[in-house]
Design a protein around this nucleic acid. Structure first.
Lengths: 268, 268
DNA sequence: CGTCGGGTTGACCCTTTTCAAAAAAAGTGG
DNA sequence: CCACTTTTTTTGAAAAGGGTCAACCCGACG
């Protein structure tokens, strides 16, 4: 049902020699392991005030290769990570292998904020593409907040925004048909990716497998495949070769059953 | 499919004369409309530091009768509400009447915190029983946070805790069977109610309809009924007459597929 | 050139929904 | 305290939306 081949992030990486220059570029402040290219369509373009406020306090950078685990759901998370480049996801993994993807994480998203400082995180995070993150040690949050009150509110707003998305997903999975769910997720990703990349073409790069889509929507990848085909036949969206082409945005949001503009506010 | 008979909360209330004394008791700080009795099993017993920090800044109180709307999903929320007594829920309402309950709100829970100060809330909230809340105007959050950094972090932690619950629900609905979902929700409510009420009996008052349970779990109330019967036949839990009796906690958490103690941390 | 991760398809099965209807409970007003 | 109404719970039968399983295809990659 799921791809369990997620490698531990602590594994040493073996970047090809050709990538050396880019790695240098990425190895800014800290001695974190940095690798791979950063020409992805998922780069942090325009910042909003809150995110910049948070990012300003980051202590370093780290990078992750595709399909590596960024946060473990049973360990206490030492650091909060802000995605700077690339695509990741957070998820729950059940004992028998079932997986629920909780969110797809784009540049600007925060992952790993813990409620209690020494409790396990409760969810895992993994890189989907190459991912670069800014690192913010968990135990620096309170000190920073004390000297910088706006920082704390920025943090709060970031968490609230991400919860609004979680709730949207819950409604999706709980009360919508497979077709509506797929339409809704594609619309969401289309809007969010355009939001962070600043572009506005009719298509985006979307390096997701149908299995990942299914794990986010509570469907099997078989059924995702069927729905995708139907959506393509009906000239709503095409999702082939990791490219999502939206043929008719209004139609898509109609199919999804969401008010257009729901996801645009995310990018504000 | 859903009960659309939610009355506007602005309706004047008509408390019986017998309740006068109790009303007085409840009308503490402000001229808010207060009514009805407060002998419910859902009363704010033991506070944790964060919640007290937040509640300390509340400006007044309000009460809601059962099935009245507390927050509207299309309006901008003026106030943040902290439940002090009673049971409420937050939900999304789709155009065609489908409803997804996002969370059940017990004393200590915060609802209505807005990410952007002037955007619609995105979800609604309704009282299930009589509900008493502490009111905290949205626009006081930032001023308070500025002079009191710990308040902001308390707020952040409260939102994080509630997001953890949302995510748990998402996994429930997306990747678990009907039986697992019902078991999981009952276990959650059992633990949370005992947490806030401070009791530890084998049963709790749980004034929910099967329809509400279904709307929270992405099931029809017909199927909830059948699952409930099966669980009763198997001597795991009994849920009759608004009373939830847990016959075997370990068995229940096993059925739910969650590690026992997941929800206990909520009450900490 | 052979393996491997994804995508695609069809047939079949099963969990859950839908619909109709009745019984039980809970309010409401007199 | 009793009729009367409205919710809520319960049950059965039938339909359907998705899941399961078994293949096969394809391009990427070593």
């Amino acid at each position: 049902m799921i791809n369990l081949s997620v490698r531990r992030s602590s594994e040493p990486s073996h970047p090809g020699a050709a990538h050396a220059a880019l790695q240098q570029m990425a190895t800014e402040e800290s001695g974190a392991l940095c690798l791979e290219a950063f020409g992805s369509p998922f780069h942090f373009k325009k910042g909003n005030a809150d995110l910049d406020a948070i990012r300003r306090h980051a202590l370093g950078r780290r990078s992750f290769r595709p399909h590596t685990e960024m946060l473990n759901q049973n360990e206490i998370a030492r650091d909060v990570l802000m995605i700077v480049d690339g695509l990741a996801c957070t998820y729950h993994l059940l004992d028998d292998g079932r997986r629920q993807i909780l969110s797809f994480c784009l540049p600007g998203d925060l992952i790993g904020i813990a409620g209690s400082p020494h409790a396990p995180l409760g969810y895992a995070a993994a890189a989907i593409t190459n991912v670069a993150v800014a690192v913010l040690p968990q135990d620096r949050l309170l000190p920073i907040a004390r000297t910088n009150p706006d920082f704390a509110m920025s943090l709060t707003r970031a968490v609230i925004a991400s919860q609004a998305l979680s709730q949207h997903h819950l409604t999706n999975v709980g009360r919508r048909t497979a077709r509506e769910r797929v339409a809704s997720l594609l619309l969401e990703l289309y809007c969010r990716v355009q939001g962070v990349s600043g572009t506005a073409a009719g298509e985006i790069q979307l390096p997701l497998t149908q299995e990942e889509i299914g794990d986010a929507l509570g469907l099997t990848h078989f059924h995702v495949n069927r729905v995708l085909r139907a959506l393509r036949n009906d000239h709503v969206v095409e999702f082939v070769n990791r490219v999502l082409r939206v043929l008719d945005v209004d139609r898509l949001s109609e199919e999804a059953g969401v008010e257009p503009g729901l996801f645009l506010s995310q990018a504000a």
